[in-house]
Design a protein around this nucleic acid. Sequence first.
DNA 1: ATTGTTCGTTCGCCATACGAATGAGCGTGT
DNA 2: ACACGCTCATTCGTATGGCGAACGAACAAT
Lengths: 159, 159
Amino acid sequence: MGKAAEELGVVSGLVRAAFLVNSVYAESAREYGLTPQQGQLLCVLMAQPYGMSELGGVLRLAKSSLTELVDRTAQRGLVKRESDPRDRRVVRVALTERGAELADVFYAETCRRVEELSAGLPEGDRETLGALLGRVVSDNRVPAVFPERDEAPVAARDN
Amino acid sequence: MGKAAEELGVVSGLVRAAFLVNSVYAESAREYGLTPQQGQLLCVLMAQPYGMSELGGVLRLAKSSLTELVDRTAQRGLVKRESDPRDRRVVRVALTERGAELADVFYAETCRRVEELSAGLPEGDRETLGALLGRVVSDNRVPAVFPERDEAPVAARDN
DNA sequence: ATTGTTCGTTCGCCATACGAATGAGCGTGT
DNA sequence: ACACGCTCATTCGTATGGCGAACGAACAAT
């Protein structure tokens, strides 16, 4: 055991599955008039507003890239910048009402489609797959780029 | 069973794992002076040369997008266009020697990094994960965007 | 107050992606 | 043979994405 063939199976499985998910994600976004990046931004912000720096960390983007992504998404009226009274350098990015509505339907539809990808697996295997991927994801500290159902349903949005 | 929570686990597991793999892929590409798309192109061509139309299907790109990707990659001397004597409309895209060398090292390094992602899993779980992902991938007819080790070791590359 | 740091934006540059329009080459039908 | 329609790939225009460097504003420390 421990043969190269099996290990490579995991590797190319992961890479090809990622390709597949990307395709589905992009197509879903497209149908709602979103780019994949804008869709991802909405999904991240579903959980809570973020400061630009945090967001850059979550999305793994350079700050200049993020400024422009937020610009374009804000131009479409989906997100807004709020200033932090504590520190006037900080900008908090939050969903607008329209953005929240769109995020909901985009998220739901994307979930539906991604779920279909594993529809061919028996129930037990799907759970196993979820558990194993969950392990990989948490081992590698992947930020919450896509909400789990029960996460933070509009918590603090004061000021 | 069949609760929403478990099913969502698979969905967000897949989406987050895809995000993770993308990050790793992009970073690996970057270190070899490649964009992720160019890296992917090289990986696809490792198996064999492709015509533009086929390649568009494999990479899921519009043909104009592909023309330009091949342009840029060819400018870097990594791929070349060959004309098909059977049908002079057809362009076959193949790796140059430099491209093949770079593809080899990029592929190897990317494999290494992706494999590390699942390094925290016990051997048996890794095999299970590979098997389940393999099932998802084949159920959804994902093209060979990333080679398996034993695939097509430099077949026909004449003239 | 001056300095250093953090924060976000701006700017220039290149890569990505698409649709529409274009033109080259193939095949069929008559 | 030649005109038509089809497929192939490219070109063009537009929008987006992504980065690093440079910048200015606001905080923090002395």
